[in-house]
Write a protein that binds this DNA or RNA. Structure first.
Length: 265
DNA sequence: AATCAAATAT
DNA sequence: GATATTTGAT
């Protein structure tokens, strides 16, 4: 283990960084220019200088939360790349979410592939039982439509014609965005609570059957359950930086503190 | 160097 | 339980 790192604990360094970003956070509302220089985008600089004081590599970034919005971006990216080119690096680049790392994508991609594989198997025949563990992890994946090409057996399709967000779409009003996001959030939590497949005979209630079906507004179940903390990376109309969000705090005990972009309620 | 899938860790 | 990290192979 590198002795050079032991002088400053990750917590200390992290706290330091929070303070540095604090001023910017105060003015949350205006579109924060990508502060991304701190993290992995500075890899080249770090390599060049060879200095030991590069925080980017030393610092633990907060654990990424794959919101339905973010996942949708992921799926779109994969779809547009075509299965051939859909590898972590390119996916990450296409998504153009600031602060998103290749490893974030790789990890997610691995899970997503397992999900797709399971789906194909279940297509025609009765299909074997899905493990409880698998079913539990499908929540997120069910939130975004699965492009048809993913389920086909034939040779991989090429990149799709239209490109969605390489160029930033014209901005909507912040209020509208917030509202839309909240709706999706509600839906997400709705699924979390009522989720699982209750169906007994025959019909599965897989998420992709929900394609385009607007859920009637339910009771007002809002906001994350208190106590469950997470950091949300928002997949932005324009690239947003993770740095814009207050990093989740990790303590030695493993306790995590929360932070969400959305107003609590 | 990237990627992948499986196992394992947090 | 969800995500990260490690591992070993290509």
């Amino acid at each position: 283990m590198p002795l050079s790192q032991t002088l400053i604990t990750p917590e200390l360094a992290l706290a330091f960084d929070i303070n540095a970003a604090g001023a910017a956070n105060a003015a949350y509302s205006h579109p924060a220019p990508p502060l991304s220089s701190d993290f992995e985008s500075s890899a080249s600089a770090a390599a060049g200088s060879g200095g030991a004081d590069e925080p980017a590599r030393t610092l633990k970034r907060p654990r990424l939360v794959w919101t339905p919005q973010l996942h949708k971006r992921f799926v779109d990216a994969v779809a547009h790349l075509g299965i051939k080119n859909a590898v972590p690096k390119t996916i990450m680049q296409l998504m153009s979410v600031d602060g998103l790392t290749r490893e974030n994508v790789a990890s997610h991609l691995q899970k997503y592939r397992l999900y797709l594989k399971r789906m194909q198997g279940l297509g025609t025949s009765g299909g074997g039982p899905i493990s409880a563990a698998d079913a539990a992890t499908d929540q997120l994946f069910a939130s975004a439509p699965v492009p048809h090409q993913f389920l086909s057996r034939g040779p991989a399709a090429g990149p799709e014609p239209f490109l969605p967000y390489v160029q930033t779409a014209p901005l909507q009003h912040p209020q509208q965005i917030t509202a839309a996001m909240q709706q999706q959030q509600q839906q997400y939590y709705h699924q979390r609570h009522l989720g699982h497949f209750g169906s007994s005979t025959g019909g599965f209630d897989h998420g992709f059957l929900n394609r385009g079906m607007p859920q009637p507004a339910m009771h007002q179940m809002v906001g994350p359950p208190p106590g469950t903390g997470f950091l949300q990376l928002t997949p932005p109309p324009a690239a947003l930086s993770v740095d814009d969000l207050e990093p989740a705090r990790r303590e030695d005990g493993g306790e995590r503190k929360v932070l969400t972009l959305f107003p609590d309620r």
